[in-house]
Amino acid sequence: MLQIFLNGYSAISIEFLTEMPRKRMTEGGIYPAILGTIYLIVGSMGVAVPLGVLSAIYLNEYAQPGKTKWLIEMAINNLAGTPSVVFGLFGLAMFVKYMGFGASLLASALTLALMVLPIIIRTSQEALITVPEEYRYASLALGVTKWQTIRQVVLPAAIPGMITGAILGVGRVAGETAPILLTGAAYFLPRLPDSIYSQFMALPYHLYVIATAGTNISQTRPIQYGTALVLLAIVLSVNMIAVSIRRHYRKKLRN
C-alpha cells in the first residue's frame, strides 16, 4: 500500500489526470479512463439504486414469509456470490449479443448494475430494519395508508443507510474489471466515448492493460503506479465516506 502510494504520488500531475494517453500508452495521461469510470458509475447506479431500493421495500415492508420471499432472498444471496467474470459472460451473451448493444458503455453499465444489485438491496434492507416499528404503527393509526406511511415516514428515516449502500456500490463499480473486460472496455481508444453504444476506457482495466500487456512494461511503471493510486484513491475515499456516514447515523440512533 505504502509503495503504491509513494510511487504513485510522484507520477500524478494535473496533466496526468486530464490528458489523453500518448505513444501507445507509454506517456501522457489517463483522462479517458477516469471519464469512462465515471460514466460507468452513473449508468450502473442509475439502474441499480432505484431497482434495489424498491426490491428492499418489497422484501421488508410487504413480503410475507413464504415461498416468494424465500425465492427472492435465495436469488439475491446467490447473485451476491456469483463471480464477477460470470456476470461478464452473462452481459456478453445477453446485452452485447442477444440484445445487440454491442461491446459498449451501455452493456457494461447494465452488467455492473446487475452485479451491484445485491449489495444495494441488502444495505437498503438493513436501513429499513433499523427504522423503529413504532413509527409505522403511529402513522397507520392516524389513518394513513401503508404506502404513504412508507414514503412519508419510513423512507426518510432509512435514507442515510441507503445512501451508504449506494456509495459502497459505487466503490465496487469503480473497481470491477472482469465484467467490463468482456462487455465493452477498450484496450486503447484515441477518443472519448460519444454515445452509450461506444466502447470506452476505464481505470481498472487500463491498469491491468498497462501492467501486463502494454508496450514496454518496465519503463512505464510510474504510469502504472499513478493509475493504481488514482483508482485506489477513488475507491477508498468513496468507501470511507460510506463508512463514516454509517457510523455517524449509528451513533445518532443510539442517543
Binding site: 413504532e134 404503527y137 403511529a138 397507520l140 389513518g143 426518510p156
Partner: peptide
C-alpha cells in the same frame, strides 16, 4: 381500514413522535 383508523385514533404505550 384506513378510514376506520382515521375515525378511531390510537395513542401508544411508548411515546412515538416521528423524527
Amino acid at each position: 381500514v384506513v378510514d376506520l383508523r382515521k375515525r378511531v385514533g390510537m395513542v401508544f404505550q411508548k411515546p412515538n413522535p416521528f423524527p
